[in-house]
Write a protein that binds this DNA or RNA. Structure first.
Lengths: 182, 182
DNA sequence: AGCAGATAGTTGCGGGCGCAACCTTTCGCG
DNA sequence: CGCGAAAGGTTGCGCCCGCAACTATCTGCT
C-alpha cells in the first residue's frame, strides 16, 4: 500500500534485523529516532494539553481551530477547509465548533453563496481567548521543547517535518481555504 | 539536565511575536518544526495504526506492550513496569493486557513474591504474532518515515528525541523495571 | 426541467486514553 | 501485634477521535 519509493533504495535499506530469538529490532539510531518521536510527542502533548485545558478550557485541537479562524482573512472559514487545514476529520471539526459555539466563542452561519456550507466565525470573545491561550501555550512549547534544542537542530526538524507535512507553515497565518488543488 | 545550550541563546529566546492584530505566532522555522512534528506524528501513526489493526488486529500500543514482553528476560513483566516503560497509564495497560489475554496471546498470573502484583507473560502465540506484526510494521515505518530521511537527519532526530525520552533506546530490548528513583 | 452524482455537515457508534475511586496486599512503626 | 500509609491492579466515567450512514444542497448533463 505504501507507494513505491525512490528507485535508488528500493533494494532495501531495511535497517532492522532479527536477533537469535526471531525478535525484530532496529539499529539504535533508528529506534531512538522513531520511538523517541512517539514518546516525545506523547509526553509533550499530554502536558501541553493538560495545561491548556486547565487554564483556558481548550483542547489542543480546539486551540488550533480557533487560531486558524483568528488568522483567516475575515475571521471565518468553512468547516471543510478547517478540517483540511488541521488534519482533523470533518466530524470532529463539526463537534469542536459545536462546543466552541456553545461557549459563545464562535458563531455559525450558513454561507450565503452555498446553503450547504457553514461559516464558522470567531467573535471577539473567541479572539480574546485565543490570544490569551496562545500566549501561555507558546511560552510552554518554547520552554518544554525549543529551549532544549540548538538552532541547527530546530532547522533540521523544520526541514524534515516540513517534508512530511506541507501544511505546517501555513499554520501561523492561514490564508484561506482553497490552497488545495481543487 | 539537558546539556546547557550554546551561550548565545541562553537568555531566553522567545521566538514568537505578535502581529498588529495581537495574534501570536512563531518564526517560520519554529512553526515548521513544532506543527510539523504534530502533523507528521498524526499522519504516520494514523496510517501505521490502521495497517497494524487491519493486518494483525493490534493497536500500536498493543504491539508495544507485546514487544516489550517479548524482549523481557523471562517473557514477562509487571503491569506497572510495562506502564512505566511504555508511557501508558496503568489503567490502559491493564485493559490492553486484558484484551491480549482474551485473545490468548498473554497469560496473567499473580506474582509469587507479591500477591498484589501480576505478571503478564507472553506465550508462544503472542510471540509468533509479535514477530509477524513487527516485520510488517518495521517495514512500513522504514518506507513511510526513514526512507524520506538522510542519515544525518536520522542521527539528529535520534539525538534530539533521545534527549526528551530516555526510555526510547530501551524499547528494543527492555532490560527490566526499576529504573526509577524509588 | 429533472435526475444522478458530488459535496457540506451532522450524528450514532465504537475504540483509545487517562483520571479518580476502589479493593487488596505489603510495608513501616509504635 | 495491629494500624495506617503506600503500592499494584481494576473498573466507572468522560473526553477525544474517526468511520459510516444520513440529510440537504449544488452541479452537470440530457
Amino acid at each position: 500500500m505504501p507507494e513505491n519509493l525512490s528507485p535508488k533504495l528500493q533494494s532495501h535499506s531495511c535497517s532492522y534485523e532479527t536477533d537469535e530469538q526471531g525478535l525484530a529490532h532496529w539499529t539504535e539510531a533508528h529506534a531512538d529516532a522513531w520511538i523517541g518521536l512517539l514518546e516525545t510527542h506523547k509526553q509533550l502533548t499530554r502536558a501541553l494539553d493538560a495545561e491548556l485545558t486547565a487554564q483556558h478550557g481548550l483542547s489542543l485541537s480546539g486551540l488550533e481551530l480557533l487560531a486558524r479562524l483568528a488568522a483567516a482573512d475575515d475571521r471565518q472559514m468553512h468547516l471543510t477547509a478547517l478540517a483540511g487545514a488541521s488534519g482533523l476529520s470533518l466530524s470532529r471539526v463539526s463537534r469542536i465548533i459545536g462546543v466552541l459555539e456553545e461557549r459563545k466563542l464562535v458563531d455559525r452561519h450558513t454561507c450565503p453563496s452555498d446553503a450547504r456550507a457553514v461559516h464558522a466565525h470567531i467573535n471577539d470573545a473567541g479572539l480574546a481567548l485565543v490570544r490569551a491561550a496562545q500566549a501561555t501555550h507558546f511560552a510552554s512549547v518554547q520552554a518544554s521543547f525549543f529551549d532544549q534544542l540548538e538552532e541547527d537542530e530546530i532547522a533540521t526538524l523544520a526541514r524534515v517535518f516540513g517534508r512530511f507535512a506541507p501544511r505546517s507553515a501555513a499554520a501561523c497565518n492561514i490564508g484561506e481555504a482553497g490552497d488545495d488543488a481543487a
